[in-house]
Design a protein around this nucleic acid. Sequence first.
DNA 1: TATAACATTGAAACCGGTTTCCGTCAAGAC
DNA 2: GTCTTGACGGAAACCGGTTTCAATGTTATA
Lengths: 385, 385
Amino acid sequence: MDEKLTIQDIARLAGVSKSSVSRVLNNYPAISQELRERVMRVVREYNFVPNVTARGLAGGKTRLVGVLTPPLTWPAVPEMLRGVAEYIERTSYEMVLYSVNFENPTHTDVVDRILSLRMVSGLLAILPCDLTPHLLKHFERGLPMVMINDQEPPERFPCPWVGVDNRTGGYQATRHLLDLGYRRIAHVMGPKRYYCAQERYEGYCQALREAGLEPDPELLLQGEFDPASGRRCARELFARERKRWPEAIFVANDQMAYGFLEVAEEQGIQIPQEIALVGFDDNLVSSHVRPPLTTVRQPFSQMGAKAIELLLKMVDPDHLLPRVRAAEGMGNAGAGMTSATTAPSSAADGSDHQLREPSAPYRSDGTIHIQLETSLVVRASSVPA
Amino acid sequence: MDEKLTIQDIARLAGVSKSSVSRVLNNYPAISQELRERVMRVVREYNFVPNVTARGLAGGKTRLVGVLTPPLTWPAVPEMLRGVAEYIERTSYEMVLYSVNFENPTHTDVVDRILSLRMVSGLLAILPCDLTPHLLKHFERGLPMVMINDQEPPERFPCPWVGVDNRTGGYQATRHLLDLGYRRIAHVMGPKRYYCAQERYEGYCQALREAGLEPDPELLLQGEFDPASGRRCARELFARERKRWPEAIFVANDQMAYGFLEVAEEQGIQIPQEIALVGFDDNLVSSHVRPPLTTVRQPFSQMGAKAIELLLKMVDPDHLLPRVRAAEGMGNAGAGMTSATTAPSSAADGSDHQLREPSAPYRSDGTIHIQLETSLVVRASSVPA
DNA sequence: TATAACATTGAAACCGGTTTCCGTCAAGAC
DNA sequence: GTCTTGACGGAAACCGGTTTCAATGTTATA
């Protein structure tokens, strides 16, 4: 049905000029109602959709945003992308996924190749690890960019940033254990070079101190955020004489907590009866492990949605306006407007327009940082059923 | 450094015409060595990368392929995409990710909108559920397409298809349990409307019959491929009087097996001591649940890689030829060729050129179907440590 | 040696839109 | 009843490449 019509064909069919069709399609203000209707009738009748490529060339802006991620098999990444996809689905933009394996030493080349194509009008960088400095160079050269990156303090980011308050998260976890009556609470810390690991640790310390306890160096273990290091820490701990065991452990991420659970299982140590466990992240798996893991939930999907919202606002402040755009004319004609007038809202909070409101999270230098909240999810690993 | 140079600028700098630059960039055969070098020197010096959008417009083909997926939080999807991403990373194509929520009733509109943009030169449809008929319409209208879809018999697909041999998979699972000496083996079947569920069931029956056993209707349960139905089946089974219990269970997918494990845990039933369990899929989680799940592994990542390889071969048979393409001139200049001469191979099997080889899996009507092999992964849920 | 055939390369058309520039026409100002 | 002003819409330039077509210089053929 919808053969390759061009704007020229539509113009001819409607008895007007190319430029008029273009103007109608782009909702140019000074257009008479009559002309608009005449064109739109033909557009709808023939199910016309303007060629994106041509649009991109002529208009200088592609309706594409790039999303750079680590391999999708990393925990949390799919959840973030779900948030991104749900938001994007409601706009007229599309997402180009660059899933790169950061272990490949040529990754900076990959990024350069990607970006030099100038195909995307903006980039969302998700957990780009050691690629951050390289990416920031592109940002400084003018590429609109938003980062989700908890390895460094947000203050240090010159570009917009979305993340959570890890300190409060660490506090929540520890406080939960304190509330349950535990006093000897250990912490398995993430890599010190990661800011989020430091913050979680500080939250842990703060909670302890508020409860009149001083963090005990003997109860602080160093992990690497992966299950293997979790296992190592568990073995180290369980090898101690029993009276030197902690009553509870706050592990800095769920991955390491899984390692802990495995070793506990192997050695027949009951969780939470002998040791209570709290993780951090609330990965999809965490409710399925045995026992289900109490953990501090990061709203990954919401983070993705907020981040892409931010990015699109930078690229195109009107990206969610109910503009009459050709793509809407298709499908079941007539109902075209409905999907467009429903502006997407990343969460159910209705807090759009952030970039324009005075309450927007501008930093003093004008950079936008958004910090979402973590929440404690209580499961059996800290509280027996 | 790499400001927006055009092919015109390069032509001027090299003292040749636009067309010559274009020809060099596209490795047109009839080009003198001298001209080629003259142009390439400038291209490299200025780190020139031709504008993809313009290329797309003029050449009529965008270097973009679409990948349509269910939400990435579905099991297996991220793994398939990893395979896709790894393959694509080595080509000059990019992937546009359309992650749609199939529960949204407007999904056919979404697909129409996507495809009518004509932005992608091909589509890889991953587990598109009830969208299949709609997608096939687009295929028949000429959109290059590959499907990963195990809901219907491959024979019924008019389009290229990648999947596994579910029958053999079911056979492997059951055979494993038989080899361990079990005789009363139950099966929790997936939805009957899914072809893969039927196939797995048939493999189960075949293995039993080969062992001289007749499938017992009492030992056949009906699930829905989700954890909830797994729990339901488990409760139903465990509620029976003990002597009517099976010795082992082949559950048609890992998700349902998780439900089984949960209920077993609740009711204090030891696995595998009291009942052995085998799943299907080998999702990422399956090695982490307690006890780790014995399961039939589907090579998801390889499926993704094969599928995208197939698609790119349809769209552009030369997509992996070491053509001298401009994008390669950048990065660390000089080493440009290296990445191009390394043709990507989806697996370590070196079995490229499939579409050209006589051994290619053409069906009688010319359609390509690729069936990969499953493999049994033995873990503690079927064999005590 | 004249000519056909071929290898190279430049000029120009084209891909399908957006946007600038300019002419037309009608309403409001003087 | 002219003149100004602004709304409206058409013609044409432009975005940055690819590809067709034709011209040129060479080499093989007769």
